[in-house]
């Protein structure tokens, strides 16, 4: 083990120490937002794998998160709960009696989503061109229609309610850290190089003997798996899911995160997730009525979105490629930064 690995392990330990401390001392509200940050980090990192690293413009997250959420929700609800909930059409019996604990439910949610990713990617990646964006966009809409109409499975528009709240800060961040490790290890290997090669020039990648079809599939299926798990975590955190919950806005929010963080940069994604999720919470201040020098300013709803948009525009003006560009944070660059400063002081 070299020095850098020790530092990385140490910072992960520090992160969990912070969460452990926060769990006891920070407000439940703050912890809740940190839980969301964990889930969104996992979603954004996997989205960045297909969009930023592999360069395949895709709009899949809302559809995939929905699948993961539904599968997990169906598996963690008890048969009695399901019977009470399906008031219009009874649930398919074998699904109604299916019940398991949280972890296997999340894994199955992820695997089912990954399989759907496989089925979607298979025809799309065999042809060249920007079909992926269109197909995944359509898929997101299809999922909504399907979940509205397969009443014996999804309970239609009524949705699934009263899910047990298994999701804790540990589940969220455990998965987030796991996803980051898996994805970053993939990126820093021959597979990651091949993904970046596909992004930079697909013809040249083929000429290098890279089976670009399977490289794209690998990225897409990995992203799908983690998005499915993220959906399951989200479902148990919110405790209620319905077809209207997973709209294109979810995809859009993730797109903002990966663009702000830097397409292809996982550490940038982590930073941007914190900035975007916490940012929109902290900016609630600007919507509250305030008194400045006796001047009463009533709260203006929607103001934080305006301020937030302005901040995003500023980021894109001053850091066109996002906070981190395509670079990753590394200990070396940190050491170099300090060294430079020391030299400057002398």
């Amino acid at each position: 083990m070299n020095k850098k690995t020790i530092l990385t392990v140490l910072s992960v330990v520090l992160l969990f120490l912070f969460l452990w401390y926060g769990d006891g001392h920070l407000s439940t509200y703050a912890m809740r937002i940190w839980e969301e940050v964990g889930i969104f980090l996992m979603l954004a990192a996997s989205y960045n794998l297909i969009n930023g690293v592999t360069g395949q413009f895709s709009l899949e997250p809302n559809g995939f998160v929905a699948i993961g959420a539904y599968v997990t929700a169906i598996l963690i609800l008890t048969p009695a709960q399901k019977e009470a909930m399906f008031i219009i059409t009874p649930m398919v019996p074998w699904l109604q009696n299916l019940h398991m604990s949280f972890f296997p439910a999340l894994i199955i949610g992820g695997l089912v989503t990954a399989f759907v990713g496989f089925l979607l990617g298979f025809p799309v990646f065999r042809v060249r061109g920007d079909y992926l964006a269109i197909v995944t966009l359509g898929f997101g809409l299809t999922i909504r229609v399907v979940s509205n109409n397969t009443v014996p499975i999804t309970n239609g528009a009524l949705g699934l309610k009263g899910l047990p709240t298994y999701t804790t800060i540990w589940w969220c961040w455990g998965w987030a850290v796991f996803a980051m490790i898996v994805i970053m290890r993939m990126v820093n290997s021959e597979f990651g190089r091949a993904m970046k090669a596909v992004r930079d020039d697909e013809d040249a990648a083929i000429a290098m003997g890279i089976n670009t079809f399977w490289i794209k599939m690998t990225a897409f299926i990995t992203a799908a798996f983690f998005e499915g798990v993220g959906g399951g975590l989200l479902a148990s955190l919110i405790t209620i899911i319905s077809p209207t919950m997973f709209t294109f806005f979810l995809t859009f929010e993730l797109l903002i995160i990966i663009v702000v963080g830097g397409l292809g940069s996982m550490t940038g994604t982590a930073l941007a997730t914190i900035v975007v999720i916490w940012g929109s919470e902290i900016l609630r201040v600007v919507e509250q009525p305030m008194d400045i020098f006796g001047l009463h300013i009533p709260g203006i709803p929607g103001m934080r979105m305006v301020v937030f948009s302005v901040l995003l525009i500023l980021i894109m003006i001053f850091a066109r490629e996002g906070i981190m560009g395509q670079k990753e944070f590394s200990w070396d660059s940190l050491f170099n930064f300090f060294k430079k400063n020391k030299v400057a002081q002398k």
Binding site: Y29, R32, E36, I238, F249, P301, G302, R304
Partner: peptide
């Protein structure tokens, strides 16, 4: 009265309720 916007979303509502109670 303290008004918080939930943007008409489930996540937004959960966050707002959580904030009002604990902060």
């Amino acid at each position: 009265l303290t008004l918080l916007d939930n943007k008409g979303t489930k996540v937004g509502t959960a966050n707002a309720v959580s904030k009002l109670i604990s902060s």
